[in-house]
Simulated scan of single mutants.
Amino acid sequence: MPEVIFPGPEGRLEGRYHPQKDRDAPIAIVLHPHPQFGGTMNNKVVYNLHYTFFKMGFTVLRFNFRGVGRSQGEYDQGVGELSDAASALDYLQSMNQNAKHCWVAGFSFGAWIGMQLLMRRPEITGFVSVSPPANMYDFSFLAPCPSSGLIINGTGDRVAPPADTHSLVDKLHEQKGITITHTEVEGAGHFYEGDHMNTMLGAVDEYVRRRLTETTR
């Protein structure tokens, strides 16, 4: 899988780009956890989400936010990271101008950034938010949430407690015109250790494939 360097708001950003042979393939970006707590694009959840989307026929890009790995810049409280994500999507779209579907997936901090990106980019047709930290960050900007998506969390998550995720999902369920699918992985912690990883990825695979089938009918 080719390493790529592309321009970001504060200098270059480092990524991994995995194209399909099909020029019309859907595209997805995958966003990593908090940079100040060891989050990188090679986080296990992010890495596995990347390959799950690729196996479903997506052209996929994951990348390091500013200040992580070889990406230039410094941590910016989520503001700059959102700009980084927008630059990554610009880059991905420039390489895949025939793509009919555009998805964003994020894990933890990356889920928060991904859902903000969703609000700014109407071309995003679906999202996957894994363990969104609704206890740490304000998700009230999702009013209304512009597209349907999957929110998934573990029942044993101590970093982003399930009760806060339930509150977020309940608020989104009240909105019309979109469908928020909520899946919980029984016993899983924040990082989906052991067999919980396969359970989580299986739920993502099933959801995204169903959505793609619905849109191609």
Results as ranks from 00 to 15, higher is better:
125 T>W: 00
15 G>K: 06
95 M>I: 05
69 G>K: 07
118 L>W: 08
214 E>W: 07
213 T>W: 03
16 R>H: 07
21 K>Y: 06
99 A>V: 10
169 V>K: 03
199 T>R: 14
144 P>D: 00
48 N>H: 14
33 P>Q: 03
100 K>D: 05
101 H>T: 12
104 V>R: 09
94 S>D: 11
28 A>N: 01
210 R>I: 01
146 P>Q: 09
82 L>E: 12
160 A>S: 15
94 S>R: 05
32 H>S: 07
140 S>Y: 04
108 S>L: 12
67 G>N: 04
119 M>Q: 15
30 V>Y: 11
65 F>I: 11
213 T>K: 09
111 A>D: 06
21 K>V: 14
8 G>M: 11
60 V>M: 07
111 A>M: 12
78 G>E: 04
203 A>M: 13
90 D>V: 06
134 A>C: 14
17 Y>K: 12
141 F>C: 09
83 S>A: 15
7 P>T: 14
104 V>M: 02
145 C>W: 03
58 F>T: 13
203 A>S: 13
184 E>Y: 02
84 D>T: 05
92 L>T: 09
207 Y>A: 06
13 L>W: 14
74 E>A: 14
215 T>N: 02
107 F>K: 06
150 L>S: 13
80 G>I: 06
123 E>H: 08
5 I>V: 14
73 G>H: 12
133 P>M: 00
149 G>F: 04
68 V>P: 07
133 P>Y: 01
27 I>A: 05
99 A>Q: 08
184 E>K: 04
73 G>Q: 07
37 F>C: 04
44 K>E: 12
165 T>S: 04
171 K>G: 12
186 E>G: 00
36 Q>L: 15
176 K>E: 15
187 G>Y: 02
115 M>L: 15
74 E>I: 06
147 S>K: 06
141 F>I: 13
68 V>R: 01
129 S>Y: 02
4 V>A: 10
160 A>D: 00
146 P>A: 09
58 F>P: 11
127 F>C: 04
9 P>T: 15
175 Q>S: 02
49 L>H: 03
120 R>F: 02
42 N>D: 15
201 L>D: 05
114 G>V: 10
66 R>V: 11
127 F>L: 10
20 Q>V: 13
118 L>V: 02
46 V>R: 01
120 R>D: 09
4 V>W: 09
53 F>A: 05
54 F>G: 07
173 H>P: 00
85 A>H: 04
178 I>W: 03
135 N>M: 03
167 S>C: 10
52 T>F: 07
99 A>E: 05
195 D>P: 09
72 Q>M: 13
170 D>V: 07
25 A>R: 06
140 S>F: 03
161 P>H: 12
105 A>D: 08
69 G>A: 06
180 I>K: 08
137 Y>R: 00
30 V>T: 14
10 E>P: 03
130 V>H: 08
167 S>P: 01
10 E>G: 08
